[in-house]
Design a protein around this nucleic acid. Structure first.
Lengths: 206, 206
DNA sequence: CCTACCGATCGGTAGG
DNA sequence: CCTACCGATCGGTAGG
């Protein structure tokens, strides 16, 4: 029995497992791209398999069901959002907001923010996918609220008066303006939407 | 040939045509309800036929294709929006905005505003359905802009300074806040979203 | 308005 | 990871 442990299991098992994780990541990235354009539900197992040049049942080696795939896709998309908007160091409100708009503007997801699209898609349904999307929305607003509160605590010029009114209220308004910028850019295909969003933010922070 | 005109065609043709229009209206109302909940694409001919207790091909007596049905549904939903929000007489900005929020709050469409849901659903697609939804969004913003401009012209106290800044910018922000209220109410199922929206409006008009 | 049908695609499974 | 298959549903048509 102890001899089992000395077998080169790490080599024969861990390597494919690492590769499997990498492939899984590639599938999820592709799924998030497609979902941002067409919505989560439109990303069928068949279409995604074709896009990845594998068979449908090949995908089922990585995901147990479509819902499982959708949840993993949301997770992947959230990590992308965090990486581009929340984590890059400078957590001043203005810097955070500019990164946020720029993340829409540069089309990090080719179809715009996945959370706006998929959020409304699942708004009226129940279940884990709805809950994951609702949680992502809450986390987005909480990130804004946190940045406002931190700015107020640091004694920032405008920011202090901002959090004095109500950080939650300002966070709602900022989030509304940000997502409206994305929304109007996607639907009207007019980059003026971002100019509107930036002007609104300037007014809000003044 | 002139005798044809004296035949009672009006009785045998117009009556069924009137009934046909009424049935068509009922189908579209049901379609708009379902689409507000699940999205336009999820309203399949089969599901809608079952909901109306008729056969699929029965529906094809009223619509030539699914796209035709979707365009007619958008038309129907717009008329409902107009009736509840735009037309009721008092075109002061505050009254218009209160009707708008109330229209979300009372769930005139059971799944919230069809234009927000379907707008994002078709945001990245091309074709007549996208164009119809984009036009509806533009008309919504234009209605807000018009109300602001009229208030400014009438020499309203706050309103004059409002349109002085930029009616288009204020309309963008009001629309952002309105739709964000609907969005967060649908996803988070928390009526506090409307309190946020009302507070935002008060701040914007002050 | 109906029944009956078309080919395509859906999510998912069997068996390897 | 594959082929081959399942029942269900899709948009749409034929023919009445």
């Amino acid at each position: 029995m102890p001899s089992e442990a000395s077998l080169p299991l790490t080599a024969t098992v861990r390597l494919p497992r690492v590769r499997g994780l990498r492939v899984r990541g590639q599938i999820l990235t592709r799924a998030a791209e497609l979902a941002s354009i067409d919505g989560l539900d439109q990303v069928s197992i068949g279409r995604l398999a074709t896009a990845m040049q594998m068979s449908k049942s090949g995908l089922y080696a990585y995901f147990t069901s479509k819902e499982d795939l959708q949840l993993a896709t949301i997770d992947c998309a959230w990590r992308v959002f965090e990486e581009h908007v929340l984590q890059p160091g400078d957590d001043a409100v203005e810097a955070l907001l500019e990164r946020w708009i720029s993340y829409y503007e540069r089309e990090i997801f080719p179809g715009g923010c996945l959370f706006v699209t998929a959020g409304m898609e699942f708004a009226n349904r129940d279940g884990p996918v709805h809950d994951a999307l609702a949680a992502a929305l809450e986390r987005q607003v909480a990130a804004l609220e946190g940045a406002i509160a931190r700015a107020g605590a640091a004694g920032d010029d405008d920011a202090a008066s901002l959090s004095a009114t109500d950080a939650g209220q300002v966070a709602f308004e900022l989030h509304a303006v940000l997502t409206a910028g994305n929304q109007r850019f996607r639907i009207s295909r007019d980059a003026a939407a971002f100019a509107h969003a930036r002007a609104a933010i300037e007014r809000l922070l003044a």
